[in-house]
Amino acid sequence: MTVLATERLILRDWTDDPADLARIYDIYSRPEITRWLGVAPGLPLTDPAQAAERWRRWRDRHAADRGRYGTWAIEVRDSGLVAGTVLLKPLPGRDETRRTSDIEVGWHLHPDSWGHGYATEAARAVMAREFATGTPEIYAVVSPGNEPSMAVCRRLGMEHVGQRTDWYGGELLETFVLAAPGG
């Protein structure tokens, strides 16, 4: 299901189609991607069958959100290539068992899709939709040293507010925030 569309991208639900599962595996089995995802359990993927488990985890995590929050595929309109993932969701607290009221935007792109502006375009679209619901600010949290993702945050107009340990079990993360337009 298409969630949003931009000039160049279709943001849609990941599916259990073999092509989507293969791309999930290809992205999340790569050390150059997973090394920035902190202490995410089960990463990097080591067996293609794990892609279906990851897809189910995303689907189940957002089942009650009615499409407002999710972990979506970024599909390039012209080619049909899935460039990666964009996510929008409540950040997990320090104990990771509950959601906070802080909303996170994030992205994970395959190396073959780096440098085309897809992360910025996808994140801008999901943030605009979320701001339209009345959310006052959106965060991006980035592992220290992940300069490309911090550059995306800056292109989005996000302000760097330092390193924080409020979320993801207290992991030290570079934190960026963008206030709602006119807010």
Rank of each mutant, 00 (worst) to 15 (best):
residue 144 P to T: 03
residue 73 A to P: 02
residue 62 H to T: 11
residue 54 R to T: 05
residue 105 V to H: 02
residue 71 T to M: 14
residue 102 D to W: 08
residue 36 W to L: 05
residue 61 R to T: 09
residue 86 V to A: 05
residue 139 Y to H: 14
residue 137 E to D: 12
residue 64 A to Q: 03
residue 162 G to I: 00
residue 137 E to Q: 13
residue 147 E to Y: 00
residue 139 Y to Q: 06
residue 157 G to E: 11
residue 37 L to K: 15
residue 95 D to R: 13
residue 86 V to K: 05
residue 158 M to P: 00
residue 109 L to E: 06
residue 99 R to D: 15
residue 114 W to K: 04
residue 46 T to V: 14
residue 42 G to M: 06
residue 121 E to H: 10
residue 78 D to L: 13
residue 123 A to K: 02
residue 96 E to R: 15
residue 106 G to E: 01
residue 48 P to Q: 03
residue 112 D to I: 08
residue 60 D to M: 02
residue 109 L to Q: 04
residue 68 R to A: 09
residue 113 S to T: 08
residue 137 E to L: 08
residue 108 H to K: 03
residue 73 A to R: 07
residue 139 Y to E: 07
residue 82 V to W: 05
residue 104 E to V: 05
residue 80 G to I: 08
residue 68 R to D: 10
residue 88 L to V: 13
residue 59 R to K: 04
residue 155 R to D: 10
residue 130 E to K: 01
residue 76 V to Y: 02
residue 121 E to W: 12
residue 135 T to N: 04
residue 140 A to F: 04
residue 88 L to R: 11
residue 143 S to P: 05
residue 58 W to G: 01
residue 54 R to E: 05
residue 50 Q to V: 00
residue 78 D to K: 15
residue 148 P to H: 01
residue 58 W to H: 08
residue 143 S to D: 09
residue 61 R to C: 03
residue 119 A to D: 03
residue 125 A to N: 09
residue 52 A to E: 13
residue 146 N to C: 02
